[in-house]
Design a protein around this nucleic acid. Sequence first.
DNA 1: TTGCAAAATGATTGCGCAATCATTTAGCCT
DNA 2: AGGCTAAATGATTGCGCAATCATTTTGCAA
Lengths: 331, 331
Amino acid sequence: MPKPTLVDVAKVAGVSAITVSRALRSPDMVSDSLREKVHEAVRETGYMPNKSASALASNRTRSVVVVIPSISNNVFTDVMAGVAEALATAQLTMQIGNAGYDPEEEERLLRSFLNPAPHGVILAGVEQTPETLKMLENVDVPVVQIMDLDDNPIGKIVGFSNTDAAEAGTRHLVEQGYKHIGFLGAQMDPRSQQRLAGFKRALEKAGQFDPRSTATTNLPSDVQMGATLLGKLVSQYPECDAVFCNNDDLALGALFECHRRGIRVPLDFGICGFNNLGITGECFPSVTTVETPRKEIGRLAGQILSVDASEGYDKTIDLGYSLVQRESTTR
Amino acid sequence: MPKPTLVDVAKVAGVSAITVSRALRSPDMVSDSLREKVHEAVRETGYMPNKSASALASNRTRSVVVVIPSISNNVFTDVMAGVAEALATAQLTMQIGNAGYDPEEEERLLRSFLNPAPHGVILAGVEQTPETLKMLENVDVPVVQIMDLDDNPIGKIVGFSNTDAAEAGTRHLVEQGYKHIGFLGAQMDPRSQQRLAGFKRALEKAGQFDPRSTATTNLPSDVQMGATLLGKLVSQYPECDAVFCNNDDLALGALFECHRRGIRVPLDFGICGFNNLGITGECFPSVTTVETPRKEIGRLAGQILSVDASEGYDKTIDLGYSLVQRESTTR
DNA sequence: TTGCAAAATGATTGCGCAATCATTTAGCCT
DNA sequence: AGGCTAAATGATTGCGCAATCATTTTGCAA
């Protein structure tokens, strides 16, 4: 028994194939009785639409392409969860591409994903190659960039100001009275660079910036790297009495390294993270961090691509951030 | 300028369309000179194959469907990363389905993903509904189950024995001299139940099992829940002096709660986790855990589905586990 | 050279659906 | 009832590719 097609359903329902197609896709265009008959026939035959045929005929898929820098970074899995949630209600599926923080790879992935044109595209950041921009223009597919802000996005952009967020976190350390504040950063992608800029801005405003204060690497970011970088920082900047971390993994690594070295947090040393992953609120001492609306960003990006006319949304949507003060900076 | 098709490339190369198709898909079937000409024409036109048309004509996609219980669980993101890695080399893409620990939802997702037939399917565990099994049989698509073992998988199965792994972790606590060992578990899916069974087996063998020793919930598992469950455990089983946790998030939550309560780890209380997420090796004290080969499982599952004849692989592949002893159980 | 098999290339067809255009039916006014 | 418009339904076509079968070319032995 081969898979039933529209024609098979049509035969059972006693109507034409195109009517079945319409009954399923645009229910309001057919009469009530017919719609019921068609649904009955669908149930009877176990019909499932062939997505390839649909895509080929309409030159559009029901799939949103999401290209993220890393599949194992909690930040992006939160985003993905939000996207998935939003798309589910619109009967759309999600195609994940893992670009590994490389715009060229992003371009390669997109190229392979754009024929046939997907329903929409979600990209991280604004660092697309010129070829990518050209490609997206040619295909005429709705694009939402995420995790950043820009006055001139490809389509729409949903995110927050990494610079401002990092500045807020750093300023908080200043306000808590820390005098020699350092910065830890790994996987220094453009958004990390923005956060570094925000860090510098806060310290320059406070007249506290020291050129020895930043310890960064382009290696992947994880808890262990946080410990390593903290070691690097205190050896190059011994007076250092607090640190703003580019993300929570680094912050946790720094915290644990402080434990190991007998540095008292927050008394001798303040720590501020970035993102507000769940664990920062639970560990001991709990870690102050800048909360970012990751899931909400994903959800909104998915929503924007779900509706036909996304005109209701602004071109640039700033979902903001908020400082979550906890024990690691409260002395 | 519309997207170039095979015919356009063929015109430029001065050959027939089907030859272009062959030159791209089965390079050994065409002469060297022709292959070169075709590639040149592809470059010149910027041709990208239309995946829908290809899938429709061949009744197969180049996409592997991965249905996992949770998109925000680190365990499964590690698996996904492994799958993605393996598929990339075979020019296959990955379609993610998020089943939310619900076999019915898994069935719904699969139903929508199976027309046209994907290149392969990866499913977590062995708890598929009867309808799911029937569907998969009808479609005749290669299936790899993961994260568990079974003598009679749908196709192949790659994983480890959750029962044995948990027994090993619990036995380690026994061997370290802990006398009243408890169990923490959240999101009690079938694999968690197996781990609970392994826990009980170890304690019964040691003659130490106490019915008050298990604190579980069906709520989602996270660090906070670990803290909550530890509280529950010590109140219902005050003599408790060690705990085996169903996963590392719970173990970390338990560890932090011990800090808060002034319980000394490992001296007064031993903690063993499950999975060996990176952070367990870094926190203070570092946490003993049972390492599971998550990424390797994903990679192997992807590999099996990448090759045409997966006959080289056993039906059931046990990738094992290993105990990683750290400070939290070393007194 | 001829003959023949193997290798290389080509022509035709249909996959299942949606876009487009065509036709029928229902609803309503005069 | 006749005439009209809008709503509902149908027929035809082609999307771009790969499967299938057909034809041409090449290599090589006798």
